[in-house]
Nucleic acid binder design. Structure first.
Length: 280
DNA sequence: GATACTCCTCCCCC
DNA sequence: AGGGGGAGGAGTA
């Protein structure tokens, strides 16, 4: 390990929980060492207590990626205190919402519809190997996440070989739109949550849930409160927000998300991650 | 405006 | 062993 990051004493951080809670899909743990590809670099990182050792990027990027410059303590303190969120915050102390690259995040959650985490990892891994640049770094070999231009050139047939299934059509069309519009992310960033959500739902394959994930993980809109089947169940169990069975209607989705925002406040999306971490 | 069905892959259970 | 059923969101009819 090349470098050591000095964690600030009043700032909780838990690397394991942060990387395994289901927000990112291209990180693997071997022994106590996590390795992932981010911004075209292979990054390795381990934590022992208050010590973070890492290699493959500079301190500035590490801080940026894991949001270590963010006052997590006061965010947690801003949740209205009830026993359920209190327990989740205690159990998953140090979980941080990472700052993902908007494009990688968009494509990741496009793939994430209608499937589980192992399969999402498989799809993204396949796409990287087949379409991404090979990186050789420090004796390790890895593949960068492919750009929108890379994917838009290899539509449909090729993408199906990545086990993306019916999503290949969405990936193809969305890639083309993004490849032709380099300012897309800045435009979304300049809007408020509601406007940004509307805008991002114009991409084929992006509905409410996928949009909310992208806005939370790729654009740091913390009022975004993604509702998937897990969160729906949890919110129903804990707060009685709606009917737990049958297909999730748009009305139910909005009711649960609005409740989340009212109950947890401006950082509802952060609260959502703490609740989601406790799913099973 | 709400409901039902399809899209595809993986995984689990028999 | 191989097949059937369920899980998981978005889009369309």
């Amino acid at each position: 390990m090349k470098s050591v990051y000095p964690l600030k004493p009043d700032q909780p951080f838990n690397l394991d929980i942060t990387l395994s809670c289901g927000q990112v899909f291209r990180w693997e743990k071997r022994g106590d060492l996590w390795t992932g590809v981010s911004a075209g670099r292979v990054i390795s990182i381990r934590q022992s207590g208050r010590k973070i050792e890492y290699s493959g990027c500079d301190e500035e990027y590490l801080e940026y990626l894991f949001h270590l410059d963010f006052d997590l303590e006061s965010v947690i303190g801003s949740f209205s205190t009830d026993e359920y969120i209190g327990e989740a915050v205690e159990r998953y102390r140090g979980l941080r919402v990472m700052r993902q690259d908007p494009w990688e995040c968009l494509l990741s959650y496009l793939c994430a519809q209608n499937t589980g985490i192992p399969n999402i990892k498989r799809m993204l891994g396949n796409m990287a190997v087949m379409n991404g640049k090979k990186i050789v770094q420090g004796g390790q070999e890895a593949y960068a996440f492919p750009g929108a231009e890379d994917l838009s050139r290899r539509c449909d047939a090729d993408l199906k070989g990545c086990s993306t299934g019916y999503r290949s059509g969405y990936i193809c069309r969305t890639s083309s739109m993004i490849a032709d519009d380099p300012g897309w992310a800045d435009r979304i960033r300049s809007l408020d949550y509601t406007g940004a959500r509307k805008e991002i739902m114009k991409y084929p394959g992006v509905g409410r849930k996928v949009a909310d994930c992208i806005l939370l993980f790729g654009f740091q809109f913390y009022e975004s409160f993604p509702v998937d089947v897990w969160i729906r169940r949890i919110m129903n169990d804990l707060y009685g927000t709606g009917n737990p069975a049958g297909p999730l209607s748009e009305r139910d989705y909005d009711r649960i998300a609005d409740f989340g925002r009212e109950h947890f406040g401006n950082y509802a999306g952060y609260a959502q991650e703490y609740l989601f971490a406790g799913r099973q």
